[in-house]
Write a protein that binds this DNA or RNA. Sequence first.
DNA 1: CCTACCGATCGGTAGG
DNA 2: CCTACCGATCGGTAGG
Lengths: 211, 211
Amino acid sequence: MSESRDKILVASLHLFARRGYDATSLSMIGEATGLLKGSLVYHFSTKDAIRKAVLDGLLNRWKDVLPAILMAAASGENRFERILGEALGFFLAEPDRARFLLRECLDRPDDLQERYAKQLEPWIAVVADAIDKGKETGEIYATVNTRAYIWQVVLMILSSVALSPLADLMVGEDDPRQDMAEQLSRELIRMAHQSLFCTPKTSLKEEKDHG
Amino acid sequence: MSESRDKILVASLHLFARRGYDATSLSMIGEATGLLKGSLVYHFSTKDAIRKAVLDGLLNRWKDVLPAILMAAASGENRFERILGEALGFFLAEPDRARFLLRECLDRPDDLQERYAKQLEPWIAVVADAIDKGKETGEIYATVNTRAYIWQVVLMILSSVALSPLADLMVGEDDPRQDMAEQLSRELIRMAHQSLFCTPKTSLKEEKDHG
DNA sequence: CCTACCGATCGGTAGG
DNA sequence: CCTACCGATCGGTAGG
């Protein structure tokens, strides 16, 4: 509908992600959108309303993408790798999503929990059920703490994407041929896989051999 | 030496960790320390100087603790678990350390990298060398990307401690007998171990059996 | 009457 | 360490 509204949301996500909510002024958002401060207030009555709209847009997008990811990987080979790869892809396509969410986790955990519990919990439950079934069949380590495992994987996804600029500086490059984000994603998936499944899958090696 | 100086640093770490640097005003720090705004400027000429002093104190403390951790676990059983456990303990003892560092990673990666590269890199190199040697002996998966692995484990430690309030709300309690922080720490160590060593160590199970 | 803004300014607070 | 302030900028609102 409103062109300005969307521009405000896009610019605000970027600024909130990079500088944080408190360090972002309405005039900065105005400068990034070619609007004046007063115009922002016309669209969103308060600064906090902008933050909530950005968060809603992000969670709604994720809510739409997540089922598609799980369905697309419902069958076939390398289900686990594909699901994690798609989840990583969602944030890597726009790292500000990860940065903003990580900041919200730090700044307003209660606010995030309200929205999360309603919208995303059912899908986490699906993943948790799949893991618990794998435990029963013996495919997955019985020692896995399902909810804690999911949370740690989510944290790795969010933080490794959000802090990729720092990784570039600190981790250095083992293999200069591929970029750091790619290396971190591959290692994350390898760690998540290796620490979940009893029988070491050869899928990662197969990919290499086939290539 | 200066009693007020220390009070300012302790109160500032707490406020920076919880609210962020930009959202923390000098009068807030003054209120927490019983000082007035002008008095803070007497001890630290600028607000940024307080931040740097807090960061220095934190990194120096860690620089002192890290060698002790590595030495103490130089021999004996469950070296890996003990090293990770001690590292987790350092942040769990004062979660604001993890929150503050995570915020600095987001807000000022360049500034953090300057201090990190000089002080902590050599110790990361020690861990990296140990992992690379384990690869040669076949004890550790050859597919491990050493630097990426270390970085992902560091991220899990920092973020799981920093965001523990959110974990309490979102993860729920599989086992109400032990608290969430304990569950997350155990699962983190299990994941890190399982995804590194080829031969599944029975150390974690042994601990249980012996208890 | 509506939308999408503007220039100017409100009362308070920021770091110094 | 406090009082007394500064230039500027904060989020938000006024009438047009």
